[in-house]
Amino acid sequence: MIEYVLMIITVLGAIIALMQRDLLKAAILTGIPGVSIAFLFQYLLAPDVALTQAIVGSAIVPVFIAITVLKTRKTEEEIK
């Protein structure tokens, strides 16, 4: 049953991340689908891929995006 929950979290998490108005929140929320996909990989009999995805999807990608947001935020505020 856990896999259905994970699938729903994945899709909802993706939609919620894209609906955020605050870009930093959006960047952090990108990790939710990343992590739940990693768990799904584990369920789908791919433990080695799950390990990689857990690191890349939950840490590297959101952090990269968040750093970009933080670095660009200053110029955004100046324009407003």
Binding site: A17, L18, L44, L45, A46, V49, V69
Partner: peptide, 29 residues
């Protein structure tokens, strides 16, 4: 930034698709 997040989801979706293809119901690792 939203475009890039979308692209990351696109890649995740394709990855999930491929993994699901290799999955065998009731199989072993």
């Amino acid at each position: 930034i939203k475009k890039i997040i979308g692209l990351a989801f696109l890649g995740d979706g394709v990855n999930l698709f491929i993994i699901t293809m290799g999955y065998k119901p009731g199989g072993i690792v």
